[in-house]
């Protein structure tokens, strides 16, 4: 559905349902250069299980208008503004990569609005290589190539999609190619510049789940130790065989893991 956030026409996928104030709500937040479609399967699943699902397109992404935001904190505040616009008092947040930092920051700084947090393919801090940043700044396709290749486990470079007939590398590339010039650089810079992650993690009071790919090359499991240590009793699920693009590489395992916290 289209709605207005901070004066801009914005979009969120709701499984074609109106927001029901009597149901729990789950907000899905995509990663860098992506849009709501990365969470289609999960959103459909939790909608059928009696939730309001709100898979957003961050400003400048997908079907949302406006300039891309340049800081994780701004994106977190935008999520709260979106909840206000949708008259949703409190929600569980599920974020992937950049979206996971947005969700965590939101949970830390707006604790009354978030009752559960799931971070998929995450780490903090989340440094981005100069090669990716430079390519993204130049709107060079090489940025899409690097993120796509390193975004999948080595085995998945050759496919093996559980979703019949879909070539995951091609699907991810096409989604990146749809992003507007400058969007990926804004997102990557936001990740790279977000230094408050571990501090924010310590402020999160709601249940937390980290869902990690055992073969993630962009946000390796080993890099998540400071984050894991900062949270109070996080639940950690490591998915064998998956890289960073967990929604595509392990869609069923992701659903099962999300049920642990949602």
């Amino acid at each position: 559905m289209h709605f207005t956030v901070n004066g801009n026409s914005s979009y969120c996928y709701t499984n074609s349902r109106a927001i029901d104030p009597g149901k729990p709500s789950i907000v899905f937040i995509h990663g860098s250069g992506m849009d709501h479609t990365v969470f289609t399967l999960a959103a459909r699943h939790f909608a059928r299980h009696g939730n309001n699902v709100i898979a957003v397109d961050l400003p400048g992404h997908g079907r949302s208008e406006g300039e891309p935001l340049t800081a994780i904190e701004s994106m977190a505040d935008w999520i709260v503004a979106a909840l206000d616009a949708l008259a949703v008092e409190q929600a569980a947040l599920v974020g992937h990569s950049l979206g996971s930092l947005v969700a965590m920051d939101c949970a830390a700084r707006h604790p009354t609005r978030v009752h559960a947090l799931a971070m998929v393919g995450t780490t903090a801090p989340m440094p981005v290589s100069d090669a990716i940043l430079n390519a993204a700044e130049a709107n060079d396709h090489a940025a899409f190539d690097m993120l796509t290749q390193w975004g999948y486990s080595k085995r998945h470079q050759y496919g093996g999609n559980r979703n019949s007939g879909m070539w995951m590398i091609g699907s991810t590339l096409r989604l990146f190619e749809r992003s507007r010039p400058g969007v990926l650089f804004a997102d990557m810079s936001a990740c790279n510049n977000y230094s408050a992650g571990v501090e924010r993690a310590a402020q999160v009071g709601c249940p937390v789940q980290l869902i990690l790919g055992a073969e993630d090359r962009l946000t390796p499991v080993r890099s998540t130790q400071p984050l894991q240590a900062a949270f109070i009793s996080p639940q950690v699920t490591v998915l064998d065989g998956a890289g960073h693009t967990i929604m595509v590489e392990a869609p069923n395992a992701l659903l099962d893991a999300l049920h642990e916290v949602l």
Binding site: L41, H45, N252
Partner: peptide
């Protein structure tokens, strides 16, 4: 139900 409703990957 989740397979029929395009929520999971599978056959």
């Amino acid at each position: 139900a989740s397979l029929f409703n395009i929520e999971r990957a599978g056959h």
